[in-house]
Amino acid sequence: MKRAGKPGDLSERERQRYHRQILLFGTEGQERLKKARVFIAGAGGLGSPLAMYLAVAGIGKITLADHDSVELSNLNRQVLHWDTDVGRPKTGSAEEKLRAMNPDITIRAIDRTIDGSNVATVTKGQDVIVDAMDNFPTRYDLNQAAIRHRIPFIHGAIRGFDGQVMTVIPGQTACLRCIFPTAPPKEQFPAIGVTAGIVGLIQANEVIKYLLGTGELLENRLLIWDGLRSTLDTIDVTRNPRCPDCGEMEERT
């Protein structure tokens, strides 16, 4: 597994800030988080809880990309953005809140729409790519960039009370295209903040586990959250050898 490089030292302030989780995974684990670079595609419903919890956990470099401005109708779920932010670019709003939450990390916000022309560039050199998008075409771009750079990709999506999460380790596990070869129809999806919070935090948990090298990731497992029944299911899945995105990749362990 690719590691986040040579660990950086923690300051006394950081030791205090992260004391409770250092009890969990030690200063070595915290140093790994500090050295990590995580790319979050989208600063909306999923991106908000993802960025907030990864920021307070001490992920050293968080890059957020979004090209939208905050709308009043975003505020029921996009908890990084507040009433006073309506009309502002989401990147500026997100950057300000995250810096205030944790000034000991680096936040970089890119005010750009991610598409096939720039996805490979903006994701290069990252340790993890996180999917906080609201559409499948961009998710396929991210999936391809993850495969190209061999960077783990944490997929998440929501609709109403339903959600799904899957972790893609390129060349080892099923990719997004293996499981969802065609995009579901475009729609204005119903959304409630609690679902985005639950699903976004499951994704954040995957990011942290990957960076620490601990636990079991959602590899070859699609997690399905059913908020109306309060159930989580995981469905075992496998790679599609004829997958147009990852089918040619050789297994690498």
Binding site: G42, G44, G45, L46, G47, D131, A132, M133, D134, N135, F136, G156, A157, I158, R159, G160, D162, G163, Q164, F180, A183, P184, K186, E187, F189, A191, A196, I224, I235
Partner: peptide, 10 residues
């Protein structure tokens, strides 16, 4: 056989 609806929002 398993069937389920994907979700696409974020």
């Amino acid at each position: 056989v398993a069937v389920f609806p994907p979700v696409a929002g974020g």
